[in-house]
Amino acid sequence: MLVNTGIQFDPQTVNLFKQISIKMIQERDVSIMLWKDQYKLGVPVIDAQHKELFRRVDSFLQVLRSRDSWDKKIPQINETLEFMKRYVVEHFHDEEEYQKSINYPGYEAHKKIHDGMVNYVQEVCKQYENSNSNEPLMQQFGGRLLAWLINHVAAEDQLIAAYAKKKGVSGSDK
């Protein structure tokens, strides 16, 4: 696995780190209002990442919708946005790798949906920076992100789970 520094890590070490982080996420006492057990795919690595994504979006929305002044919210909003930019790309990549590993026939279409969302997140972040932390832009982003994420996990991603079950590879964390 190549990272920005150009260092090549041993794949086994990378996998070990991934397993540890999945376990940490699973064991964390999370109370996520947005998360519902019906969103689970039965693929541990993806389910753990989904849960983390929902947890982050949940905390983003709590800040976004709190009664505090916008100036007070900005540091937390910025922090979550930075995370989202990185995590969305990482999660989509891992999910796409999983789809390839099970020869999921909807891979190309699913990747297109992911790419569209990545572009949207990056574009909004750019606009937000250029606008000097514009609140209406962030409220619009929050509303769309909420609906998009729920639909994507409740509908699009469930198709992967259905295919994996049909092929007898569900529960695999390849």
């Binding site: 209002m33 947005l34 919708r65 409220q139 619009q140 509303g143 769309r144």
Partner: peptide, 27 residues
């Protein structure tokens, strides 16, 4: 609709609500 999705109470239609239901129409 936005209350069900977010688990939060909304008292008026604002940018957040409009954007969320626009995305539902889009979906």
């Amino acid at each position: 609709m936005v209350n069900i999705m977010s688990g939060m109470q909304f008292e008026a239609v604002d940018d957040f609500v409009t954007s969320a239901i626009s995305e539902i129409a889009n979906i």
